[in-house]
Design a protein around this nucleic acid. Structure first.
Length: 573
RNA sequence: GCACCCAUAGCUCAGCUGGAUAGAGCGUCGGACUACGAAUCCGAAGGUCACAGGUUCGACUCCUGUUGGGUGCACCA
């Protein structure tokens, strides 16, 4: 099944073929900016007309004349300097939405899992608290994960955690020197983080601590049982804490293969690259020159081995590419990290090209999250930015609103709603923005429950469900959709556009497009709700039946879309 | 020094293979519950799209330059 835009684009290309203009890539039809120009428009006549040195308006008219009939289209006309405006058939829209409703899926059909994508996201460092700086990769990655799954991809979501490296030497030294067992039993990560920060402070005055840390790191890497035991323990307590947060935010992974997983691959990999001439020695270190494949990096090679023989994160990234290739043979690999790593990944991808790995790499980079004072959150800055605390604050705030607006619901139900609303608000506040723009972390904005926010979508869904519940109580059932009122039509069209929104969001790796669509859908429903009564003695039974079907379809579209962006579609709130 | 990113309403942001009168939320002002949930809806005010050129039927969008801000660039990740 094609989307509406695809359907119309196909029609336009058929018209062009009929006219003998074969071989042009046809501009995709797009929804019009305003309803006065119909529902969809094609701008192809401008380009084709220009190419054939023909007046665009005349070209558009010729194309309209050549359009084959289609049940979806009741009107195609030339407007302005050469736009072709399409008006869709109400009957066709009703049938389209009705079929999807009957099929129990409003989104685009998901083909079998023929293609595999690896999505690498979240990737926090262990032994540290997750703070709001980890939010973006986690949430954007989580949405891309669900988006691909929804579209039928075979998805491998991989949490490439930072569980190997020099921080463990520091931590081990600090553990021996200053640990507080009681605090560790109480809150392991908090204690580890305290030790890590403390080490940094002490090391300023005592440079020998750094030497000891390096020695401990070396012992860990050579397999010293005691250090390995400590390391294992630090990683485990971290994962327990991460899991709790992920579960709360509805984030899932298929595998958690951190940096340590590749530790034994690094030396052989660099040796092989040297042998193959891909990497070369440079001042005692080993680099991969990139100027030949990526001129921009002529002066910026990828460093894969330090002069002391140690590997770097670029080395791990290359080993990871190999492993994924060997294990899943993915059709594409998506990395979700902040913009600062852009050059790094370009270098890694360029190095891969040199090594003959050509699969499709996508770096989804997002802008920096800054605090209102302009600072970038780090493990050292303020405790209030601890992710768990932020979620707790959001849920507590939501609870106040729930108690105020829905006092009639049970305590348990209100708690559940507050959790969904609070966590959802945080997720949606981030996801509804274009990933690539920098964002200011504004707690008040994250907590806001008015306007274009998570509860707005949830509320629309709950209202749909409320009508459907009441209809069931009254014995009213849904029936064939007939779109008469302008808002019935508008709502059906909005529902029918879900597949387009999902595909646009997936193809451009921008979940905010789906959020924007859902906000529009919820708003259209709210206006429909105000203008078109569904139930009641003064409503024609056929009208009730039709509007019930439309309401059910709306609820289904909202639920599917909200599921992808990680919001729970509650039945009441 | 080299490279990349950003600048849109008072605030926070959409607008992305160039398309019709640049949109939304918040905030401000004014309206709408004797009918399915007012966590809602409607209306108003609010813009030299940083600036200057260029490309063309058409530029917030592409190109060049300027200003202002951010980020990255060999032994950290």
């Amino acid at each position: 099944m094609r989307t509406i835009a695809e359907e119309l684009t196909l029609l336009v290309s058929q018209a062009a073929e009929t006219m003998g203009h074969v071989g042009f890539s046809v501009d995709a039809c797009v929804p019009t900016a305003s309803a006065q120009h119909g529902d969809y428009q094609s701008n192809f006549a401008f380009r084709l007309g220009k190419h054939l040195k023909m007046n665009p308006r005349a070209m558009a008219q010729a194309m309209v004349d050549a359009l084959p009939p289609h049940p979806a289209v009741v009107g195609a006309e030339v407007a302005g300097p050469g736009f072709i405006n399409f008006r869709l058939s109400e009957a066709w829209l009703a049938q389209n939405v009705g079929e999807r409703l009957a099929a129990d899926r409003m989104g685009p059909p998901a083909p079998g899992a023929e293609k595999t994508v690896v999505i690498d996201y979240s990737s926090p460092n262990v032994a540290k608290r997750m703070h709001v700086g980890h939010l973006r990769s986690t949430i954007i990655g989580g949405a891309l994960h669900q988006l691909h799954r929804f579209l039928g991809w075979n998805v491998v979501a991989d949490n490439h955690i930072g569980d190997w490296g020099t921080q463990f030497g520091k931590l081990i030294v600090a553990w021996h020197e200053w640990r507080d067992e009681a605090a560790y039993a109480e809150d392991a990560i908090a204690e580890l983080q305290r030790l890590y920060v403390l080490f940094g402070e002490k090391a300023k005055a005592q440079p020998d601590l750094e030497d000891r840390a390096r020695a401990e790191t070396a012992r860990l890497q050579s397999g010293d049982p005691e250090n390995v035991r400590l390391w294992t323990q630090f990683v485990e307590v971290s994962l327990v804490e991460f899991d709790a947060l992920y579960q709360r935010m509805g984030i899932k992974f298929d595998v958690i293969l951190g940096e340590s997983f590749y530790r034994d691959d690094l030396k052989p990999l660099v040796d092989r690259m040297l042998a193959d001439g891909i990497a070369v020695d440079s001042d005692g270190a080993v680099i991969v020159p990139l100027g030949d494949v990526e001129p921009q990096f002529a002066e910026q090679p990828l460093l894969v081995r330090k002069s002391d023989g140690a590997a770097l994160y670029g080395t791990t990234d290359l080993a990871t590419v190999y492993y994924r290739q060997k294990t899943w043979a993915p059709d594409k690999v998506v990395y979700v990290t902040d913009m600062r790593q852009r050059d790094h990944f370009r270098q890694v991808f360029a190095a891969c090209r040199k090594m003959g790995i050509e699969h499709n790499f996508v770096h989804v980079y997002f802008g920096m999250l800054r605090l209102p004072d302009g600072a970038v959150p780090s493990s050292r800055s303020g405790l209030a930015l601890n992710l768990k605390e932020v979620l707790d604050i959001a849920v507590a705030h939501a609870r106040k609103v729930v108690d105020e607006k829905s006092g009639h619901l049970s305590d348990i139900e209100r708690a559940e709603i507050a959790e969904a609303v609070g966590v959802g608000a945080i997720r949606y506040a981030d996801l509804s923005q274009n990933p690539q723009t920098d964002i200011v972390f504004d707690l008040a904005k994250m907590l806001s429950l008015d306007g274009n926010t998570a509860p707005y979508l949830m509320y629309a869904h709950a209202r749909c469900k409320s009508i459907l519940r009441k209809a069931a109580d009254e014995g009213a059932s849904s029936g064939p959709m007939v779109l008469e009122h302008p808002l019935e039509r508008e709502l059906a069209l909005a529902v029918a556009r879900l597949p387009e929104a999902v595909l646009d969001a997936a193809n451009s790796y921008r979940p905010n497009l789906l959020c924007e669509y859902l906000f529009g859908l919820a708003n259209t429903f709210a206006r429909f709700y105000g203008a078109c009564r569904v139930l009641g003695a003064d409503v024609e039974p056929n009208t009730t039946a039709s509007r019930l079907a439309l309401t059910a379809a709306t609820a289904m579209a909202l639920r599917e879309g909200m599921g992808i962006v990680g919001l729970r579609a509650l039945d009441r709130m």
